[in-house]
């Protein structure tokens, strides 16, 4: 098992290396000049070339590209992530400050996805072709198909503007008010969660249906297990194998969705920071955000691999 984990981690590092090159090159290839927009934002109006050169030296933009890359990587590993061109803030503290907020958003959306998606999938499979199944399956397609921003607008209008149940936007830290925190995160996490739930529900349904057709389910019945025990003890675990794989792949969409949702609900998380950085061409921040997104997805896939090994004894590495 240890060997398996080490192997997966080293694969991830190799992938991360290539991703970092891609991120770096893409950052430089973006149209627009970050120095120009940073200087503009200071409100100094037209400035001399000297000021711009100073700026470039300050951010190391005068050096050749490959040196810039190596300096960036070295800095990244040693915890010096540079300063934001737009605000002059240190990137790492900016990051650490926002990380818990985004993590809460992720965990909340995973919670909703599982709480809604898995039971719906199971019920759908067990009552296949009933009106309940048709309703749930249609609901899942709608859940997957509705764009995040649209669902967000509708929910804000219904639950915040008309019913006043949840605040329309903003974020209350957990340390300030537990209730306020949960209320402010309810809608954003739910919106992200329903996207995942639709996907998850459909995969749970089809996977469970496939498993229920297997011979070993007949064996379980022949042993005298009641319907419930057959599902819980014999069908669910093997049915989760493809679902876990899909959940890992779908994680990328969740992360992408968080950028939109954070922006829409004015949640001061990493997504919002990333979007702002892109608007101002603030590439130290863009690069840091993208690398963290990549690391995030790699970690999730590592977890998926481990869960996979736990569920399916056939993929466990032999000692």
């Amino acid at each position: 098992m240890k060997q398996y984990i080490i192997q997966r981690i080293s694969y991830s590092l190799v992938i991360l290396f290539f991703v970092s090159i891609l991120i770096f090159v893409l950052g430089r290839a973006l149209p627009g000049d970050p120095v120009q927009s940073a200087v503009m934002s200071t409100g100094m109006g037209v400035v001399s070339d000297d000021v711009i050169d100073d700026f470039k030296v300050q951010f190391g933009l005068d050096k050749p590209l490959h040196i810039q890359y190596l300096l960036w990587i070295r800095g990244f590993i040693s915890g010096e992530w540079g300063r934001s061109i737009a605000t002059g803030e240190e990137v790492l503290p900016m990051f650490m400050h926002r990380l818990p907020i985004t993590l809460e958003l992720f965990l909340g959306s995973v919670f909703w996805s599982c709480i809604i998606g898995i039971p719906f999938g199971i019920i759908s499979a067990l009552r296949r072709n009933s009106w309940l199944d048709v309703t749930l399956t249609t609901g899942a397609i709608i859940g997957v198909s509705i764009p995040v921003f649209w669902e967000g607008i509708i929910m804000i209008y219904l639950f915040a503007v008309i019913m006043h149940i949840f605040p329309p936007s903003g974020y209350v830290p957990f340390s300030e008010s537990i209730q306020g925190n949960l209320l402010s995160m309810a809608m954003p996490t739910f919106i992200m969660g329903t996207q995942g739930a639709g996907l998850l529900g459909r995969y749970v349904r089809s996977s469970l249906l496939e498993v229920l057709g297997h011979d070993y389910i007949r064996t379980a019945h022949a042993k005298g297990l009641k319907e419930r025990a057959v599902i819980v003890r014999h069908a669910l675990k093997p049915a989760m194998i493809p679902v876990v794989t899909i959940a890992g792949l779908a994680w990328g969409y969740v992360v992408a969705g968080s950028f939109i949702v954070e922006y829409m609900f004015a949640i001061p998380g990493l997504g919002r920071m990333g979007v702002n950085a892109i608007f101002s061409n603030d590439f130290p921040v863009i690069q840091a955000t993208l690398v963290m997104v990549a690391i995030n997805i790699l970690i999730v896939n590592l977890i998926v691999d481990l869960i996979y090994g736990y569920i399916d004894p056939r993929v466990r590495v032999q000692q």
């Binding site: 011979d215 070993y216 064996t219 022949a222 005298g224 297990l225 675990k237 569920i311 399916d312 004894p313």
Partner: peptide, 23 residues
């Protein structure tokens, strides 16, 4: 259910597909 596997047991033909792979 209380008779299946208890008073009457059944043995199926394909052991590899009739046994649950994850248990």
């Amino acid at each position: 259910c209380s008779i299946r596997g208890n008073r009457i047991a059944m043995i199926f033909q394909e052991p590899m597909t009739s046994l649950n792979p994850v248990l």
